[in-house]
Simulated scan of single mutants.
Amino acid sequence: MVARLPALAEIAAKVPMEKLSWPVLDSLSIECWIRRDDLLPAWCQGNKFYKLYYNICSAPKAARWVSFGGAFSNHLYALALAGKELGRKTVGIVRGERPAHLSPTLCDAEAAGMELIFMSREKYRALTARNGFTSDWSRIKSEVAHYLGRDDDWIVPEGGANRAGLEGCKHLGLDIGQRGRFTDVLLAVGTGTTLAGVAQGLASVDGPGMSRAAERYPTGHVPQVTGVSVLGALKSGRSTLKEEINLMLNGQDRVNWRLLEGVSPGGYGRSTPELEAFMIEFKRDTGVQLDQVYTAKLFWVIQQQAKAGLWPAGSKLLAIHTGGLQGLRGLHFKTARK
């Protein structure tokens, strides 16, 4: 157990940023670097911890940390491991009925001390909204308290998607801006919280305004933050991911970010044979392991868009490896259950 929660800036500063030897982009004269948040200790690994950090810092000392997720949730996994490391009780409300065999993710969460409470998919959908920006949060807290039979728990939104999560992700952008000079910063996007935080962080380097931050960069502008959506088709009646990111950023103009949608293979949480072949090829070429839910889709899109000419020769890209490698076990687990 750690004696205290280290400052988030200290954690961010320890993350290696490495130049990739990637033949596909090398042949296009595009320099690609990778930020290895996957190499941090398991309890504070990947972008999930940045989103959790200020959520758990705000929790009363005696309160249990309660959050939501599915059977392969990186978020619940991160919360459980952080709780174990910091000596805090955690509760995971899991979407769906308890199966005969727990997923490897939930086995690890339970082994870390997380109490798992399973909820029908219908009730889960009624209780949770997309994230903590658009939710009726007071209603959710009240309903969770009623469901759990106690009102002293500390509720963290699914995926850590709220203002506290965004503030944590700003440290990613701040650290990148202070340590490197890149034309573009790229990452996989689910809720959009990490993208919004990175964009704000990069724009805040050396000052609160965009013009002050731009002085640090040789091109005279803040690096373009490009998010690659890993979601499937949007359901009718739901706000778009771009709209929700704009809401997170208080409607500020998209001066330093953009979102690529409908270009990654498979729907959310789904893989394809082509994607799995790409993961093997990428590891062979670069030595870096990717996961099928987030990072493989990010680098697959980078490769495709680079070939299509999205970035000119001489560009210097930084791709954020947001972790999630524990989810690789989902490929084998789902196959074994068939």
Score class of each variant (00 low, 15 high):
Q292D: 14
A277W: 10
E10Y: 04
R216N: 14
L187Y: 10
P157A: 05
D108P: 00
R125L: 10
F299K: 08
L331D: 04
H221G: 14
L20F: 02
L25V: 12
I11N: 07
Q252T: 08
S58D: 15
N47P: 10
D152L: 13
N74G: 10
G267L: 06
G267R: 06
D253Q: 15
D153T: 08
K89F: 11
I11M: 12
M114A: 13
A12D: 00
W22K: 01
G87C: 02
Q304N: 15
P60T: 10
G330L: 02
P60G: 12
F333D: 13
Q45E: 14
H321M: 11
L298D: 05
L40C: 05
L195G: 06
C44T: 04
R212A: 12
K170A: 07
T183G: 13
C169Q: 03
I34P: 07
D285C: 10
Y54F: 15
R125S: 14
R64A: 14
T226W: 08
I117Y: 00
L8T: 01
S211V: 11
E10K: 09
N162A: 07
L86W: 04
G113N: 06
I176R: 02
P265C: 03
E110Y: 04
L172Y: 08
Y77G: 01
G201I: 00
R337V: 12
I117L: 04
R216G: 10
T240I: 09
V91M: 09
A62I: 00
